[in-house]
Design a protein around this nucleic acid. Structure first.
Lengths: 212, 212
DNA sequence: TAGATTGTTAATCGATTAACAATC
DNA sequence: TAGATTGTTAATCGATTAACAATC
């Protein structure tokens, strides 16, 4: 499969297809068509087909795509097959929830450890270690960690981010609702809950108005 | 301020402006220009200006927008000023982390209670009650709850979602990595971590390749 | 073969960016 | 006044959708 230039919009939809395919029961048909996928997910069938064309090396007219291969292709394309090691900074409630969430393995993410200024806990229930911040740099360099997860309060996020970059981290996943300034070659993915909430609350406002 | 039709893309950026404005120290200048905002956030200045034009009733040439009014306008536009009551289903680690997160108040979100099939805990540390699922319907109707948050494992998400809708909920915020089928007038906002991870892991893959 | 489905090429749509006039 | 900044109108860009030919 030749790797084409891929747009962010496509990239955002691929995990949705994959999760649906995975959710199908074991005994499901061997083949699935773009039409079937589109209907199940409430999307346009042409869009689905075009997206799949980016990652798969061809479905068969009349039958569709082989379910197994399709899942493999998407997984591989998204890099879910080779695990990425990550560390997390900020072992508060959210941080610990993420540290303890085993579902990330499915996406090729392996959180090695948590770090906190106040490492009151030495290990989470799940056995993940929580270290003091002073060990951050050493740990990252020793383990060649490339991804950092930020779950500290907003006002410390930029500072933590700078530290992570100094430790060699190239991709930052942040849950702090602030903009982070980073050099060009670093990717920041902001899990912006404020955005989701805005969309939801706009919807509710519109609904209320309608009902009047 | 006349309310214009607003696009999702704009809606997603508004919380970013707001959070930046809020992060400015108390003693900052009274006025801020779209240019200054754009530079601070690494965005295009025309885009920022156009977005602000949607919510504000005008900046002043040469000086910019009054910081206070701008924050008020955005907050109001996003509905952060009138609180929305919500309930949460699935009091696992993530669920409890969200229940305990006080920062949502800032966005006008008030999580009244959690629900779980196994309500082992009666109250979270923060004093939010956790009820058994059997009380869901009654609670929602009594309190006229319109928003539901889903933090149950993927395989139960659809079922919980259906229950929520039956209880009168109009907006669903879900953290389960699955597609949810809902009637047309219900909004589902999927906090899709898989998507974020996909973007991040693609970036790392690209980086690795470059370095070779 | 006929028909469902794929994949591609062209048309449409929407959002971003650029250019420019208006204003304090 | 001159210049920074706003807001609007036009041009560009990219993504989605529609139309159609290819295929099993």
């Amino acid at each position: 499969m030749e790797r084409k230039e891929i747009s962010k919009s496509v990239l955002k939809r691929l995990p949705i297809y994959l999760s649906y395919l995975k959710s199908l029961p074991q005994g499901s048909a061997e083949y699935i068509s773009a039409t079937a996928l589109a209907n199940a997910l409430g999307m346009g069938e042409v869009q689905v087909r075009k997206d799949l064309a980016m990652v798969s090396d061809g479905g068969r007219p009349k039958v569709g795509y082989r379910r197994e291969s399709l899942m493999d292709d998407i997984s591989q394309f998204l890099g879910y097959d080779n695990t990425t090691d990550a560390i997390l900074v900020g072992a508060g409630k959210l941080g610990q929830a993420l540290l303890g969430y085993s579902g990330f393995e499915e996406y090729g993410l392996n959180i090695l450890a948590g770090f906190d200024i106040q490492p009151t806990i030495q290990k989470t229930e799940d056995g993940k270690p929580i270290f003091p911040m002073s060990e951050l740099e050493n740990f990252c360099k020793m383990n060649k960690v490339l991804m950092g997860i930020i779950t500290v309060p907003a006002q410390y996020a930029q500072q933590v981010c700078d530290q992570l970059i100094a430790c060699g981290i190239k991709a930052v996943w942040t849950f702090a609702p602030v903009h982070l300034d980073v050099p060009e070659n670093i990717l920041v993915q902001n899990e912006n809950m404020a955005t989701s909430l805005a969309l939801l609350s706009m919807h509710l406002q519109a609904q209320m108005k309608e009902r009047k």
